[in-house]
């Protein structure tokens, strides 16, 4: 279910956390769905169980999952909270993409219409093909 790039410079627990967030955001992992146990996942990925625990702790801290003692970890249904740090990070990424597009000479109108299109798709919930 999770493919990690062990060659990447990014710490493994961060990669794993990001992968899981991606799956939650895309609704592949549904609210209240159980995540694989640390033991199972560490066997499958050949990764230190402590690293997986760390990723789960991080996700819990950031409010993406919750854990029930003795039962495991589950996806937390989304609710409004303080995401400012993450949002700032995403804004920085967006600005990188935008400046490259401006450099390549994409006109302002086209940029805006592209963003509007993407927005209406994202708000629509699923991507229409």
């Amino acid at each position: 279910m999770f493919e990690l790039d062990l060659r990447s410079r990014k710490p493994v627990y961060e990669q794993l956390a990001e992968k899981i967030i991606e799956l939650i955001v895309c609704n592949v992992l549904k609210p209240d769905q159980q995540l694989p146990s640390v033991r199972v996942l560490s066997g499958e990925l050949t990764i230190n169980p402590n690293t997986i625990q760390k990723a789960y702790r991080e996700l819990e801290h950031r409010g993406y999952i919750y854990s029930l003692p003795g039962k495991g970890s589950f996806v937390r249904p989304r609710e409004a909270g303080d995401n400012s740090a993450r949002i700032n990070n995403l804004k920085a990424q967006l600005s990188k993409v935008l400046s490259e597009m401006v450099y390549l000479g994409v006109p302002r109108d086209e940029l805006i219409s592209t963003i509007e299109n993407l927005l209406s798709r994202a708000e629509g919930g699923n991507i229409d093909d």
Binding site: S42, T46, N48
Partner: peptide
């Protein structure tokens, strides 16, 4: 890979 997996299983 096999040996690493066996060790990690025992740790987990």
């Amino acid at each position: 890979q096999n040996v690493k997996r066996l060790i990690i299983q025992d740790v987990a």
